[in-house]
Design a protein around this nucleic acid. Sequence first.
DNA 1: TTATTATTGTGATGTTTGTCACATAGAAAC
DNA 2: GTTTCTATGTGACAAACATCACAATAATAA
Lengths: 187, 187
Amino acid sequence: MKEKLKEHIEKLIPLTDDEFEFIVSHFSFETHKKNDFLIKQGKNVEHCYFVVSGLLKLVYDDAIGKQHIVSFAMEDWWESDFPAFFKQTKAKMSLQCIENTKVFAISFKNYQNLCVDFQKMERFFLKKSNSGHTASQNRILSFLTSNTKERYEQLLKQHPLLFQRVPKTLLASYLGVSRETLSRLSS
Amino acid sequence: MKEKLKEHIEKLIPLTDDEFEFIVSHFSFETHKKNDFLIKQGKNVEHCYFVVSGLLKLVYDDAIGKQHIVSFAMEDWWESDFPAFFKQTKAKMSLQCIENTKVFAISFKNYQNLCVDFQKMERFFLKKSNSGHTASQNRILSFLTSNTKERYEQLLKQHPLLFQRVPKTLLASYLGVSRETLSRLSS
DNA sequence: TTATTATTGTGATGTTTGTCACATAGAAAC
DNA sequence: GTTTCTATGTGACAAACATCACAATAATAA
């Protein structure tokens, strides 16, 4: 399990074995079952997660009980309710398992300590934050420039595996259309 | 002019006068006129900008010549084509003045040097990146959960000044609807 | 000033999408 | 193995929206 995390970090910054052991000592390893919640809307956000295996959804439940998918998180992704995690406020969104999922979890305190004690890691998180920002901006751009069918095809092209693993209802929610409309696109 | 930047940074991290002088030496001050381009789609992205006064738009021109507003940048905002700035690739978007605008500009090299030489500033940029990510995610959420009228009202509520300073056509482009539809919402 | 351009409103019309309804196939539970 | 729930497709209809067209006013340039 640890190797996955090590390989992931080393894509951006080289590490000695000792350095990695220091890093990993800040994390706890967790196993979760399908439908488990890692974060629950309205509750405190204790951790930020690195997904080793499995699949998560970051969802927002609106006032009329509709569920909106802000993001999926697959292997090799970092996920949390980041605004709430960084400001240590109540979660605006839930993070829930679509499949059985294994993660490394880091608490806010450990996150801060790690950044202070090991500057390379702060740089790592900065780069991750930048790429998250970029991904969000691309998603905004796809809303602005593309119609539903085009967004659907872009999603399939970028993440073909998702198509196999996620019910269409969730894909529709991610794309911001009704499941009926999405269904009619495929046919 | 410098005071604006100093006050802005000190909202997150306290600075001595010497520290600030060191920071500001990495920036150049620029004055631009309405309609000037700071970044042009397809060209290199030399700088990241802090807006002292004025108003910018970050726009994407699509294949059929339609313009889409990714973001506005007002006083006290940081803006650039961040993906292209950080990866030093060609700009995917343009950054253009809606009004006469004054900015502090930092080159990629100076940005890197500043982060390495002055760790507090790296932390500052990390926090800015996080808040940018949060803002983008909120915008995605508004696309998922709200209809056009609601998004329009949210925008007016969050940035009432924008309503005065920006032609409706641009607001429509930011919201992802035609100017006609936006016009009919107001009446 | 006068000419030109940009901005905004609004009508008419067709397309896209959401919603409600019902049907079927498959998965999971018992 | 039977029941129950979930996922998915599809028809009918109404609401939301884009597009084209034209007009009027405001801002800018010559």
